[in-house]
Design a protein around this nucleic acid. Structure first.
Length: 253
DNA sequence: TAACGAATAT
DNA sequence: AATATTCGTT
C-alpha cells in the first residue's frame, strides 16, 4: 500500500503549506464600539501583516454583514461589550450560524468573565491592553480549526480523542495566564498610585492604571489629534514627560 | 523654536 | 521586552 504513504505525505505537505501561507493573508474582522481601541487594534493587526477589516458599527449590523459575506473573513475579534448586543450572544450566534473562530476581547481580566467567554465558544480571550505577541499567534486558531474539521470529516468513527486542542495553544494560554497575574498584582497594590517613585526614578512604568489614563485621554481627543503633547496635558500625571507618552504611543500604534 | 515621529540605544 | 534617547523633519 505505498499510495497510503503518499497520501499521508501529501496531506502533511498541504497543511504545512497552509500554515506558511495563511498568516500572511489572514482576514480579520476587528470589532469594537470604541474607536480608539479599534485604532490601536488595527495598528497591531497591521504590524502582524493581517488583512484587517475594522468595524465600529453596531453588533447587529456586523452580524448581518457577516451572514452575507460569510467567506470573507477567517477570524473575528470582538469586544465583549457591545452597546446593542451582549457579546456572548454575538459569540453564540456566530458559532452557530457560521464556522468562524471568534476571539473575545475585554478590559476586564476577571476569571469568571474569561470562563464565560470560553464556555460560550470563544477560541481565545484577550485582555486589554493587547500586546503584539498575543496577536502574532492568533492565526493558529484558524489553521487548527481547518485541520480539525478536515480530520473530523475524514474519520468520525475512527477515534474520539478529547485532547485535540492543546497542541498549539500553549503559547497563548501562557500569555493569558501571565496577564491575569499582572492584573491581580495591580489590584492588590491599589490603583491610586500610578508611579510612587516619580522623583528618584525617572523610569516610567506603564501600569494598567496609567495606561487607562492614556487611553482615556486619547478617547477625549479623538483619533485625529492624538499627539503626545495633548495626551500628556490631558493625562495630567506628575513627572510624566512628553517623551514618555511619545514612546508609549510609538509602541502601541 | 517647539513638537513630531522614526530609529536607535539602554 | 519595555522604556528612553537621539536625531532628522515639519
Amino acid at each position: 500500500m505505498w499510495y497510503n504513504l503518499v497520501k499521508i505525505q501529501l496531506k502533511l505537505h498541504m497543511e504545512f503549506f497552509l500554515l506558511q501561507m495563511s498568516n500572511q493573508h489572514m482576514r480579520v474582522l476587528a470589532f469594537d464600539d470604541n474607536p480608539t481601541c479599534l485604532k490601536l487594534l488595527g495598528g497591531l493587526l497591521r504590524k502582524c501583516q493581517y488583512q484587517g477589516y475594522y468595524n465600529n458599527n453596531q453588533a447587529i449590523t456586523a452580524l448581518n454583514m457577516l451572514k452575507e459575506n460569510m467567506n470573507i473573513f477567517d477570524l473575528i475579534i470582538s469586544d465583549v461589550y457591545m452597546p446593542d448586543m451582549d457579546g456572548y450572544k454575538l459569540l453564540e450566534r456566530v458559532g452557530l450560524e457560521m464556522d468562524l473562530p471568534v476571539i473575545m476581547l475585554s478590559g476586564n481580566g476577571d476569571r469568571n468573565l474569561v470562563m464565560k467567554g470560553i464556555t460560550h465558544g470563544a477560541c481565545d480571550y484577550l485582555v486589554k491592553p493587547v500586546h503584539l505577541e498575543e496577536l502574532r499567534n492568533i492565526w493558529q486558531h484558524v489553521i487548527r480549526r481547518k485541520v480539525e474539521s478536515k480530520s473530523q470529516s475524514k474519520s468520525k468513527h475512527n477515534h474520539e480523542k478529547s485532547d485535540q486542542g492543546n497542541e498549539g495553544g500553549d503559547q497563548n494560554e501562557k500569555l493569558n495566564q501571565k496577564r491575569k497575574d499582572e492584573e491581580e498584582d495591580d489590584e492588590e497594590n491599589g490603583n491610586e498610585n500610578d508611579d510612587p517613585t516619580t522623583k528618584k526614578k525617572p523610569w516610567t512604568v506603564w501600569s494598567i492604571g496609567l495606561h487607562r489614563k492614556f487611553v482615556a485621554a486619547i478617547n477625549q481627543l479623538g483619533i485625529e489629534k492624538d499627539v503626545p503633547k495633548r495626551i500628556l496635558d490631558l493625562m495630567n500625571v506628575d513627572g510624566l514627560a512628553r517623551e514618555n507618552v511619545a514612546s508609549h504611543l510609538q509602541v502601541l500604534m
